[in-house]
Amino acid sequence: MKKVYLYKKFERFWHWSQTLLITVLIFTGFEIHGTTNIIGYESAVNLHNIAAWAFLVLIVFAIFWHVTTDEWRQYMPTLNNMKAQLDYYLIGIFNNAPHPVKKRTLSKLNPLQRVTYFALKVIIIPAMVISGLLYMYYNDAFIIFEIENLDWIAWVHTLGAYLLLTFLIVHIYLITTGHTLTSNLSAMVTGWETVDDDEVKELVEEAIEETGLKIKVVNDNPEEHQKLKNLVVKAMKETEDKVNDDKLKGQKEKKNKKNKK
C-alpha cells in the first residue's frame, strides 16, 4: 500500500466548508419551501441567508484559488476513458476489476467526475446563485427589472435544490467505491490517498514525465519507504533513455519553464 498526496489544504477546506454550507442550505431550504417544519420558518430564513452569503464568499475564494493554481483544468470535461469509467461502475465494480482511471496529482478526477463537477460549477451552482439572489432581492427585482413573477425564480431554485440533493446522495455513495470503503473519504480528510502497489511505478513514471518528479511519495514504514525509494530510482533510470529523447526533452523544458513562471 502506498499513499499519494492528492488534495491540498485549501481544497480540503473548500470541500468540507462547502459540504457544511450545502447541507445547511438544503435543510433550511426545504423548510422555507414548506416541505418540512423543524426549526421554524424565521430561523430557517435567517440561517439560509447567512449560509448563502458564506457560500458566496467561499465561491469567491475558490475561484481565486482555482485560477491561480491552474487547478480549474482538472474540471475540463473529457471523453477519454468515459466508456471505461461507465463500464467500471456498471460491470467491473461487481467483479473486483481495477479502477480504469488512476488518480494523480495533475488528474485526480475521473471523466464522470469531470463532467459532473463541471456541470455543477458551470450550470447548477450559478443557477442557484442567480436565482437565489433574485429571490433574496425580489422586491428590488420587481421594481428595477420589472420581473413580475417570483414563480420561475422559485422553480429554478427548487429544481436546483433537488439536483444538488440528488448529487449529494450519489456522491456520498460513490465515495465508498474507492480502493477501500473509506479510502476516498480519508483522502479528502488528510489529503493522502492509498493506492495499489503496482500503481506506484506507473504513477512515478508519469509523474517524472509530467512534472519532473514533483510528486511526493512517502510511507510510514521505513522498510517500505526504502523499497519505494528504490522503486523511484529504478523508475528514474528506466526512464533515463526516454528523457534523453529530444521530443521528451523539449516537453520537459517546456514544463520546467512553465513551472518557473
Binding site: H33, A154, T158, L163, L165
Partner: peptide, 25 residues
Amino acid sequence: DFYLPGRDFSPVAETAGVSLILASL
C-alpha cells in the same frame, strides 16, 4: 395571483425533483 414561498410550489418541478431523489436512492 402570486407565488408565496412556503405555500406554493410547481407540481412539475416538485414531481421531477422528488422522482430524481427517489431514482437516485
